[in-house]
Amino acid sequence: MSRPDRTHFAPLLRVIHWTMALLVLAMLFIGVGMVSTTGPAYVSLLALHRPLGIAILLLALVRLAIRLGTGAPPLPDDLPKPQKLAAKGSHGLLYAAMIGMPLIGWAMLSAADDRVSLSPSLALPAIMPHDLMLYWWLRQAHTVIGVAFFLLILLHLAAALMHGLIRRDGVWQSMTFGKIPGKRD
């Protein structure tokens, strides 16, 4: 999938990456915050959580299409093989979580016979049958995968900063708008 002729990810992909970075982090904080309280914030955060989740799902699908169509710049030659594998594996998991978490949320509400309301007069159709045990499993998965997603993002961020601040090998710049050190654009 890597494209030796690239130094950067596609420009639109970079824009979507940073937009989603903010949205996904906000979403994970909204999610754990809302379920922790019986206060008024519960209702307001829930009203944000559902439409934001669908927005993330749509953005992730657009992003996946761009990524498959435009490829990724190659990782540095001197990067040890296990690190290359870890990079590729974690990117795959991040895509799976970005697409999977909204789908699990939508499926879980469908199994509970609840609506994903995007506005007071616009609700999405059900994608699962009304089944309480199914709801329970999906609800557990939504929490476990949500926390795992947050930890994966921390790992991804730490690795990206290591590339940018310590290795200075162009990997950080491949997702930003700066010049690649030692290379001509």
Binding site: F29, V32, G33, V35, S36, T37, T38, G39
Partner: peptide, 12 residues
């Protein structure tokens, strides 16, 4: 934010 640390927050 999750209520794991900090002052106690009444949960469901």
């Amino acid at each position: 934010v999750a209520g794991i640390i900090g002052p106690h927050r009444q949960s469901g």
